[in-house]
Design a protein around this nucleic acid. Structure first.
Length: 304
DNA sequence: ATCGGTTGACCGATCCA
DNA sequence: TGGATCGGTCAACCGAT
């Protein structure tokens, strides 16, 4: 929480200006006829990534600020999460109310601190994407009000690792999976990028025949690492060209989060990132085209 | 034989009358 | 306050490799 609302506003403005700048670059590039062939195409991709990055961050910042305003939950009022327990330390100090879709009962939300001490939670709503850890499924449960059952996984990379995750198909968009991470990885890394080689050429760490392990693309990892620290200075928002963090609507923090907890984060896939080889096993064939369309639509957020 | 997913049962937290 | 409800977990079972 390095900056308050004012800092967030300034940062948002910077991000939008950055997007504008990149847009102009793109215009110039396209006006030039794209004669550069592959080189030009690469440049376009880079610029698009920049634009999307900036816009996503700006949007996230705006969304969070709006949420905070609505909730009258001063971010500074919440106790800071333990640094070692935070993937995104300052995130979600403001939490919006349940925003429709599947109803999230108070009971459900309050249970989150039950399992172990590290009740902090990150919700990744990333469709068919997976992280780099090895998970073993240990249960599945029909959830009241949810169309799809929730699956429960625990980290199987090392015996005794306390990390777990819950995977549930989105009611709103069945092609998307909502992944909730609970607890810390005691198997050597606190976040998915840690145990993963940053070079995709290194290949998967695990047996390719096992569906549970996939790599987080190195580019995405780098982006995460770049943006996560920045996010705490920036209204606690972060995103990458492919991911947008928004506060989870699942709970009201003041009511549901005990001291030391880190509120939920929701990551919504916003635009193209296509590590096809990494996600193929979860990819539903019928979703491929749909995804692609949606991605293009979301390159420029609506608020622009 | 081993590994991992499925599924029914159970436990405990929370809700509500 | 106690029964009802529900989410989370356990563990036996089964299929795939």
């Amino acid at each position: 929480m390095a900056s308050g609302a004012g800092g967030g506003t300034a940062a948002t403005e910077r991000l939008i200006r950055s997007a504008q700048k990149s847009t102009n670059q793109l215009k110039a590039l396209l006006a030039g006829g794209g004669g550069g062939g592959g080189r030009s195409s690469g440049a376009v991709e880079v610029i698009l990534a920049d634009i999307s990055d900036s816009l996503s961050q700006a949007l996230a910042s705006l969304m969070l600020r709006a949420a905070c305003d609505d909730q009258s939950l001063p971010a500074a009022a919440a106790p800071p999460p333990p640094p070692e327990a935070s993937l995104l330390p300052s995130y979600g100090q403001c939490v919006v109310a349940n925003s429709g879709g599947r109803s999230v009962s108070k009971r459900k939300a309050q249970r989150r601190s039950r399992a172990d001490g590290s009740s902090r939670r990150i919700i990744l709503e990333l469709g068919d994407r997976d992280d780099s850890y090895l998970w073993r499924k240990y249960g599945q449960k029909d959830i009241l009000g949810a169309r799809f059952a929730r699956s429960y996984y625990r980290c199987a990379q090392m015996l005794g690792c306390t990390a777990r995750k819950q995977v549930q198909q989105s009611d709103d968009d069945p092609s998307r999976l909502e992944i909730t991470y609970i607890g810390l990885h005691t198997c050597g890394g606190d976040r998915p990028s840690s145990p993963v080689p940053t070079n995709p050429a290194d290949g998967p760490r695990c047996d390719a025949a096992t569906s549970s392990h996939r790599l987080l693309p190195s580019a995405l990892q780098q982006k995460l690492e770049e943006h996560v620290p920045a996010a705490s200075d920036d209204m606690m928002m972060a995103c990458t060209p492919s991911w947008l963090f928004i506060p989870s609507p699942a709970c009201s923090q003041s009511e549901l989060l005990s001291e030391g907890e880190v509120p939920e984060l929701r990551v919504v896939r916003q635009e193209p990132y296509d590590p096809v080889e990494l996600v193929e096993e979860h990819k539903k064939p019928s979703d491929a085209d749909e995804d692609s369309l949606a991605l293009h639509d979301s390159v420029v957020p609506d608020f622009m």
